[in-house]
Design a protein around this nucleic acid. Structure first.
Length: 920
RNA sequence: GCGCACGUGGCGUAAUGGUAGCCGCGCCAGACUUAGGAUCUGGUGUCGAAAGACGUGGGGGUUCGAGUCCCCCCGUGCGCACCA
């Protein structure tokens, strides 16, 4: 009987579904294992063959762990809020909910065909009110907490209020926007609005005036990770900086814990490094510079306190509050002109032309160590959002300051011995200090490292400044001026934001007539009728960003139907954290930071038991497209084969990869493909039309999209699963090339044939036992290391050997089916039932142990080397000891030739591996 | 500029410091066949008739022995990027 993948796969998928084979429950008698995929955004294009790569990898691991006796949680859901559905809604008037659920249905049917072991009873959708109730709930908790820097955790805001009532801002230990200074008396006299504004400086979810990435084309603000090189990640539209009053999350309060937490989790070094870069910890000092003839003091941040004697000017960011304070009347016009010029440049323009620009404020600061007056400038190379938005410029040892000093002809004082600063700055962080002697501090002769430490100590003691750690990580901007997102559970009373009472959650997303901003420029929710509380207070018009719903979804899978809590303590206590998380690197600085932050916050509240959500993380590589080209001779409808194209003047044209096989074009299919080609003529080579190829992104416009449904239809899900894994190492990006799939398909057919006339109960031969135990050992270790491609090679070798051995023994074939089950579950289930005669699912089998006894060789063949060069092979009994093997090697007639007239220096013997004789 | 990966046949790739190229694609030859997108057998790094020599981006080093470890250079990919 032929291997009929269609019947087999349909049959067993139905069987698994009917019997709820993959449904899991808390079971404290068994160890748990949580395998998670990054849930997809259901786009209108459906799945292409690249999407399931990670899902197949995690499915194999989940099935493997189950066979090992673990209670495996392996859920799937949808990240359903997002821009594309809303953009589509704007164009068509179609409700995003409708588009989204249609796309989800399509995704589901595609996923179902691949034979995943998801527990679909736990499915979540971020746009489902039952789900986003808990997104809104978490936001309210963040509003009601501040980050206590003494306790190093989030604490209820009431504790902070009590502190203010007793002591004002004195001695407060809280992560904050800016340093405030008020007494208990002043606090008590504040109006409600003033109190609210003050508390916003501390809340973890807060309203703040911040510089945001504003994307006019999308009509919304974007988070830093949603912007790359000055354009939006979605759509590629220009982004500009704008000061807006927005909801923000105080992620920065968790910077140190997010950084430290990386040390204890099993992620790749490169991903950890990406997060470390993004968090960007730098140790330095904050220093105050008095402004001559004024009460104003400039506070600056520097990592190079040692260079204080080389400060020749100060620079303020254009947006800095200091600018208006220090600008003199004479310079007012020039400064305003400059600020206007800067403001009209987008982020992108600022990055493209790195022209050095700036303006003098007219004021001078006083160097606290030398007492010298130094000019204060404004320039856009200083960022408002980092440090204090003001710097001390040391042109001799910072290339940016150097460029500025040269442009505006400011002095450059070298501070490190041997530094030549006539052409460029000397940015090195080592060397001996010179020119660094003031009335109270002498750094001359010190190493840079020591000089930094001594200066920090000096300024701390003198009260000029203090040691400070700064992070690049900014607070997350949490408002979006869009429709298709979670509404904020917030209403406004006298301009003060209040949280809706818990019993009014979820606050449902209202219906609106058009998915556009209102005429007044309000977000789309401004169109909603009766968008107010029962008491008539207006509700918030912004919605939450995409990362809100994806930040805690892994917790919801643990207890998806709980109406009382995000997750019950029982469910959370059992499932704890994700043991294996598989997904793409593109989330390194977005989702994977926000999720960790969100989780740590819930951990502080005692709502979850694990401080880090994702214990082990594997990044699957991207599957790129492999495009094919035909070459049209200019101004003709004649196409020339790739090997001959250089003889003509040709235009390459993308051709649908589905009518190309092994780079050979199906010319008839090509004529039918598009009307303009139905009269196409071909210049062939060796009777064939050979196409060119290139690796590109998989996309419709390149005609290189391969749909998994087509592969499943033709070869079956098991072949698709095996081939995706066989393509190469999981972490590596690689192009999809359907050529080659025949190899794994052939393997399944051979396996099928091995079972064609049933299994026997006869004992297996030693050779067959060795074959199967070698396989079990190899596959077990490969799965643990996610080296699935080499496992599949091992399966092929195993089946070839068993076929050659004519092995029919149950003793061998049964473990073979079990270890194959994670990779090719349908054929394994079929063989398990029909050939091996079991009546329960193979999923409940037990992963076989391998027995080294079957792997022991009777004889070993050693390559005998002289000075590392292999000269002949020597076969000896495997049990033979070192000295006897070497004696046998020497006695071999071939050895005499190599030993002639030479002296043996030493012998090297690696059991089972090598015999090497070193001579001279 | 800084950081992190990576570089092996025509292609995808494999090699706890121990005979480089397993497995697969493709290709070549053959078998069975009355044509199939079927199956099976053998071959397939380069040069050479062969023996053999040469071969893992380039150069150096450690070692009896290096694709693998160390240093320098070149190239590709990714991340961050006026972060003081």
């Amino acid at each position: 009987m032929e291997y009929n993948h269609k019947d087999i796969e349909a049959k067993w998928q139905q069987y698994w579904k009917d019997r709820e084979i993959y449904k899991v429950n808390v079971d404290s008698s068994r160890p748990k294992f949580y395998v998670l995929d990054m849930f997809p955004y259901p786009s209108g294009a459906g799945l292409h063959v690249g999407h399931p790569l990670g899902y197949i990898a995690s499915d194999i691991f989940a099935r493997y762990k189950r066979l090992q006796g673990f209670n495996v949680l392996h859920p799937m859901g949808y990240d359903a809020y997002g821009l594309p559905a809303e953009q589509y809604a704007i164009q068509t008037g179609q409700h995003p909910e409708k588009t989204t659920s249609e796309n989800i249905a399509r995704y589901r049917s595609q996923l179902d065909k691949i034979g995943f072991c998801y527990d679909w009873s736990r499915e979540v959708r971020t746009c489902d009110p039952k789900f986003y109730k808990w997104t809104q709930w978490a936001f309210q908790q963040m509003f009601n907490h501040y980050y206590d820097t003494a306790e190093n955790r989030a604490m209820p805001i009431e504790k902070l209020i009590a502190h203010f009532e007793a002591n004002g801002s004195q001695g407060v230990n809280a992560a904050q926007g800016k340093e405030l200074d008020f007494t208990a008396e002043q606090w008590k006299q504040m109006t409600d609005k003033e109190k609210s504004d003050t508390l916003m400086n501390y809340r973890i979810a807060y309203l703040g005036h911040t510089m945001v990435n504003w994307c006019p084309k999308l009509g919304t603000v974007l988070a830093n990770d949603e912007v790359s090189e000055g354009v939006s990640l979605r759509g590629g539209y220009p982004v500009e900086q704008k000061l807006m009053y927005q909801w923000c999350l105080r992620v920065s309060a968790y910077a140190e814990r997010l950084l430290r937490g990386l040390d204890d989790i099993d992620w790749t070094d490169s991903l950890k490094e990406t997060q470390r870069n993004w968090i960007g910890r730098s140790e330095g000092a904050e220093m105050r510079f008095k402004v001559a003839g004024s009460d104003v003091e400039l506070e600056i941040f520097t990592t190079r306190a040692d260079t204080i004697f080389g400060v020749t000017f100060m620079v303020l960011a254009p947006e800095s509050a200091y600018v208006s304070q220090v600008t003199t009347p004479e310079q007012k016009q020039a400064v305003e002109d400059y600020l206007n010029e800067v403001k009209h440049k987008t982020e992108r323009e600022r990055m493209i032309d790195k022209k050095v620009t700036g303006v003098f404020t007219g004021s001078y600061a006083i160097n606290p160590l030398t007492g010298k007056e130094i000019p204060i400038w404004v320039s856009d190379y200083v960022l408002a959002g980092y440090g204090t938005g003001a710097i001390m410029a040391v042109p001799a040892h910072d290339s940016r300051d150097y460029a500025f000093a040269r442009k505006f002809d400011l002095p450059v004082i070298p501070l490190i011995e041997g530094a030549d600063v006539s052409e460029q700055s000397f940015d090195a962080k080592s060397g001996k200090m010179i020119n660094s002697c003031g009335p109270e501090l002498d750094l001359n002769g010190s190493e840079v490292k020591d000089a930094i430490a001594r200066t920090k100590q000096f300024i701390s003691e003198k009260g000029i400044g203090k040691v400070k750690v700064n992070y690049r990580l900014r607070d997350a901007i949490f408002s979006r001026q869009r429709y298709w997102g979670e509404p904020f559970p917030v209403y406004y009373k006298d301009g003060i934001p209040h949280m809706l009472p818990a019993n009014q959650l979820p606050l449902l997303l209202p219906e609106i007539d058009q998915y556009l901003p209102t005429e007044k420029g309000e977000p789309p929710l401004g169109r909603a009728k009766n968008w107010q509380t029962p008491e008539g207070y207006p509700l918030e018009l912004n919605t939450m960003p995409g990362f809100a719903g994806s930040s805690a979804y892994y917790l919801r899978y643990m207890d998806p139907h709980n109406e009382e809590a995000l997750v019950s303590p029982e469910a959370n206590g059992y499932w704890r954290d994700v043991d294996l998380y598989i997904g793409g690197t593109e989330h390194a600085t977005g989702h994977l930071i926000y999720s960790r932050f969100w989780n740590k916050f819930l951990y502080d509240l005692g709502k979850v038991v694990a401080d880090e959500p994702f214990r082990k993380l594997v990044n699957q590589g991207m599957i790129q497209g492999r495009s094919n080209f035909v070459y049209r001779i200019k101004d003709t409808n004649t196409f020339v084969s790739a090997g001959l194209k250089d003889q003509y003047d040709v235009t390459p044209i993308h051709v649908d990869v589905n009518i190309v096989s092994n780079d050979i074009l199906d010319t008839e299919a090509f004529r039918r493909w598009r009307p303009e080609f139905n009269t196409a003529e071909f210049i062939l080579e060796d009777g064939k039309y050979v196409c060119g190829w290139a690796v590109e992104k998989m996309s419709k416009s390149m005609f290189n999209v391969v749909n998994p449904d087509d592969i499943v239809e033709r070869y079956g899900a098991d072949t698709l699963r095996l081939y995706e894994m066989f393509l190469g190492p999981l972490e590596q990006s690689k192009p999809w090339d359907t050529n080659g799939i025949d190899g794994v398909n052939r393997f399944l057919k051979k396996l099928w044939k091995l079972y064609a006339d049933g299994v026997s109960d006869d004992p297996a031969s030693a050779a067959s036992l060795k074959t199967i135990h070698t396989l079990i050992k190899k596959v077990t270790s490969d799965i643990e290391h996610f080296s699935y491609n080499t496992s599949i090679a091992a399966f092929m070798i195993c089946v070839n050997e068993l076929t050659a051995q004519k092995c029919k023994s149950r003793e061998v074939l049964e473990p073979l089916v079990i270890v194959l089950a994670p990779f090719a579950p349908h054929i394994a289930e079929e063989l398990w039932h029909t050939a091996l005669g079991h009546d329960t699912t193979v999923c409940d089998a037990t992963w076989p142990a391998y027995d080294e006894a079957h792997l022991v060789e009777q004889e070993v063949t050693y390559p005998v080397s002289f000075n590392g060069k292999a000269r002949f092979n020597l076969t000896v009994p495997a049990a033979m000891g070192k000295d006897d093997v070497i004696a046998a090697a020497m006695a071999n007639e071939g050895a005499a030739k190599w030993l002639e007239g030479k002296q043996i220096v030493k012998t090297i013997f690696v059991p089972g591996k090598i015999v090497n004789i070193v001579v001279k």
